[in-house]
Simulated scan of single mutants.
Amino acid sequence: MKPTLEDLLAGVPARDGNGGTPLAPSVSASKAKTAEPVTQIDKTTANAKRVLDEEAQARADKTAQLKAAREARDGSGKT
């Protein structure tokens, strides 16, 4: 027997929201259009830069945590 939608949503709490009215767009349609069409290579480049930036941030965070742990383990190091 397959579960019904009501069975799946039984544990999900109700949301207070906009009262059933459509949400207003956060950006107007005229501002959403760009001057030039975005090519697939532009999308790929943007995604690659985003991934590299996220990885660099994760590395920097990990390095800071390791440095703090080393300093805590070894003491302040400077007397």
Rank of each mutant, 00 (worst) to 15 (best):
M1N: 15
T4W: 02
L5I: 09
D7G: 14
L8V: 00
A10Y: 00
A10K: 05
A10E: 03
G11L: 12
V12K: 13
P13L: 01
R15D: 12
D16C: 09
D16A: 10
D16E: 13
G17I: 02
G17N: 12
N18R: 06
P22M: 07
P22G: 06
L23T: 06
P25H: 01
S26L: 11
S28K: 07
S28Y: 02
K31T: 00
K31M: 09
A32D: 05
K33G: 00
K33R: 03
T34Y: 01
T34D: 10
T34F: 01
T34G: 12
A35E: 02
A35Y: 04
A35N: 13
A35D: 10
V38Y: 09
V38N: 00
Q40V: 06
D42Q: 10
T44V: 04
T44R: 13
T45P: 11
N47D: 12
K49P: 15
R50Q: 10
R50I: 05
D53H: 11
D53C: 10
E54A: 02
E55N: 13
E55M: 05
E55K: 11
E55Y: 11
R59H: 09
R59L: 04
R59T: 02
A60C: 01
A60H: 04
T63F: 05
A64W: 02
L66A: 10
L66Q: 10
K67T: 11
A72I: 03
G75Y: 00
G77P: 00
K78T: 07
